[in-house]
Amino acid sequence: MTFGSHASEFAGRPVVTVPVDGPLPTVDAPVSWRFSRWDFEEKSEDTLSEEFRDAFERFVAQAGPSVESLVIGAWGYAAFNPAPIRQLCAAAERLPALRALFLGDMTSEECEISWMKVGDVSPLLTAYPALEVLRVRGGEEFDFSPVRHDRLRELAVESGGLSREFVGAVLASDLPALTDLELWFGTEDYGGDTTVEDLTPLLAGELFPQLRRLGLRNAEIADGLAVALASAPVVGRLERLDLSNGTLGDEGAAALLAGQPLTHLTALDLHHHFLSPEVAASVVAALPGVQVDVSDPQEPDEYDGESYRYTAVAE
């Protein structure tokens, strides 16, 4: 799977696109504004897209005080142009109502996730102390620094190859209000070198006291994660657990079922998996009060006598 479409909903609101020209559409309910300017200008490599910069400034001047939720799509050509993080930070005083931000909502035709130049996204949290939801997508030059933020409830990091340094910085952050954490690990081929051991403080339940949903998604190490989660203290206080989009197989599912009870969960998301039909059915049967998603089964590729499983998103 690659990203073939833009988000239609974000932060519980429908996404409405900011037009290239003219006034904003009239809306009769809260929305997430989507701002995007795709522009391929090879000579502008490693510099902020001027078209994006100027158009975004006009948008902020037009609607800034009323914008509560914002989705940033293409910022020029993301393989050439770095993400507009500094511009977003500089606009913080003119976006006083912003509570939800998605940086990087673009399709693979606009830019493959592994090519996206993003940078360190943690300054966004410093610039917006009232932010409650942050979703970021990226691959190349994708970084995070430890930060304290008192209001952030949801943090999602989408990547085809998430580094252990990025993950370590997230886990070193002080996020007392965090209820929802979602990490996409990806594959080693694209820089995803995080190990199960790197997640020890998280799995031990030592971090984020309000955490109720944990997504360890798009993971090449999905079976290892399942084995660790089978006895991880953090699971006992979760309401929702998400291991979707990864390479989960029968061995990982069996470990989950043989471990600590999961009947307290409201939802277990395993979609895009490599479970046999029998094991998938056994997971559903074992958790009758839990909303279990075992849709989108995958078949491993066979090559030269070897079997290969793939995450939903890599390149």
Results as ranks from 00 to 15, higher is better:
residue 1 M to F: 00
residue 5 S to R: 14
residue 7 A to M: 07
residue 8 S to K: 13
residue 12 G to P: 01
residue 14 P to N: 03
residue 20 V to R: 14
residue 22 G to F: 04
residue 22 G to E: 09
residue 25 P to Q: 13
residue 32 S to C: 13
residue 32 S to T: 12
residue 33 W to N: 04
residue 33 W to T: 11
residue 46 D to N: 14
residue 48 L to P: 05
residue 84 P to C: 10
residue 92 A to I: 03
residue 93 E to D: 14
residue 94 R to M: 02
residue 100 A to G: 02
residue 101 L to R: 05
residue 102 F to E: 08
residue 102 F to N: 02
residue 108 S to Q: 08
residue 112 E to P: 08
residue 113 I to A: 10
residue 113 I to K: 03
residue 115 W to A: 14
residue 124 L to E: 13
residue 124 L to S: 07
residue 128 Y to N: 10
residue 130 A to S: 15
residue 134 L to F: 13
residue 137 R to P: 01
residue 138 G to Y: 04
residue 141 E to K: 12
residue 143 D to G: 04
residue 144 F to S: 00
residue 149 H to L: 03
residue 154 E to Q: 15
residue 156 A to V: 09
residue 158 E to Q: 13
residue 159 S to H: 04
residue 160 G to Y: 12
residue 161 G to L: 03
residue 164 R to N: 10
residue 172 A to D: 15
residue 173 S to M: 03
residue 176 P to F: 11
residue 181 L to E: 04
residue 184 W to R: 06
residue 186 G to P: 01
residue 190 Y to G: 01
residue 197 E to V: 06
residue 198 D to L: 07
residue 199 L to D: 03
residue 200 T to H: 12
residue 206 E to R: 13
residue 206 E to T: 09
residue 207 L to K: 09
residue 219 A to R: 00
residue 230 A to K: 08
residue 238 L to A: 09
residue 240 R to D: 13
residue 242 D to I: 09
residue 244 S to E: 00
residue 248 L to Y: 10
residue 251 E to Q: 14
residue 256 L to N: 06
residue 257 L to W: 07
residue 261 P to G: 04
residue 272 H to R: 00
residue 276 S to P: 07
residue 283 V to Y: 10
residue 283 V to F: 11
residue 284 V to E: 11
residue 287 L to V: 07
residue 296 D to Y: 05
residue 299 E to K: 14
residue 301 D to F: 08
residue 302 E to A: 12
residue 306 E to W: 15
residue 307 S to P: 04
residue 309 R to W: 08
residue 312 A to N: 10
residue 314 A to H: 11
residue 314 A to Q: 04
residue 314 A to C: 06
residue 315 E to Y: 11
